Amino acid sequence: MTPTLDTRPRIIALMGPTASGKSAYALDLADRLDGEIVSVDSVLVYRGLDIGAAKPARDEQARVPHHLMDVRDPWQPYSAAEFAVDAAVAIDGILARGKLPILAGGTGLYFRALLEGLAAMPEADAAQRAAIAAEAEASGWPGMHAALARVDAAAARRIHATDAQRIQRALEVYRLSGRAISEWQRDAKMKTSCWKVLKLVLAPPDRAVLHARIEQRFDAMLVEGFLDEVHALRGLPELATHAAPLELPAIRAVGYRQAWQWLDGDGDATLFRERAIAATRQLAKRQFTWLRGELAARWFDPVTQRMPLDAAVAGFIGQPSA
């Protein structure tokens, strides 16, 4: 029996931990293959978060069209469900222009929302979130993680004990519905993709190499004026008058939270740097946990395995490799 030819439009998904080289490789691919980039990053969506978020420079954005960056102010909410809708619109527009869509980022929830769909679980509830935040103030987020483990052991195994945002959401869903978030996620119907997707994980095999890149990149951010950027954010009226700016997803982002705390007088410059680098390494660790679950993805180090990486892309899009 002759196999059915897959005629779905092709898109490339570049996944990986922070500081792994995704953005640089996405730019290179877009240059070579006439592509446009769709950012899959929950920090790049915010205006004003540039240096600390490693947002592509203005000349890079001018060289290659980028989508889903600077779509919200840092005090505005933006959900994974909204991202999925916006990203699908961006992808369809890129395909309509005859270009290659290149997804690039490290936010696993955004990738899942776009490529697999999300469970129809309860919407966010401000009162419930406030109650959980108050409990966390008293017992700490590790204590809230222990509370989550008692009602949803599967979710607690996936969520780090200091990941406040995900702990809060998991507890919120359980308290609103009486049902574990892991059950909602398990029952979610997988979205039948209208695109053929090549999933590539870009990451060095040696974790120490990534840790060194994280440290080097953070020091470069400081030289570029990261603290001036955070000063400017603190001066925005909507943030300066916000009751709890550190509870906003934008300001909770690694680096920004630690800089904000230091500018509030918590610790010295050395401690700030250590905290920010440690938080970034923890983020990378969580990203690796998610990436290991992407069974259909192929792993490459974009530095030492560039030729086989390029060959995988060429084979997917039907072009001879260089």
Rank of each mutant, 00 (worst) to 15 (best):
A153N: 07
G318Q: 09
P56F: 01
G315D: 07
A53E: 00
A119L: 05
I277E: 02
V254F: 08
A146G: 13
S177Y: 04
G255E: 06
L100S: 07
V201R: 04
W290R: 01
H160M: 08
P237I: 06
D92Y: 04
F272G: 03
I181A: 06
R32V: 12
R217L: 07
P17R: 09
I214E: 01
P122A: 09
V173C: 00
S39L: 05
G98D: 07
A243H: 06
A278P: 05
F272L: 03
A212M: 03
Q282T: 14
R32T: 14
L246F: 02
S23N: 06
R298P: 08
I91V: 07
E247G: 10
Q168H: 12
C194K: 01
G255I: 02
Q258V: 10
L222F: 06
P77T: 14
A30V: 05
V230H: 02
R58S: 13
D125Y: 07
I159N: 01
W75D: 13
L236M: 04
I91K: 04
Q216V: 09
G140Y: 06
A24T: 10
K22C: 00
L33I: 13
L200E: 04
V64Y: 03
A212V: 12
A244W: 02
P17Y: 04
G93E: 10
H242Y: 00
T4N: 07
G108Y: 08
M307D: 15
P245I: 10
P320T: 15
G225C: 06
L248N: 06
P205E: 14
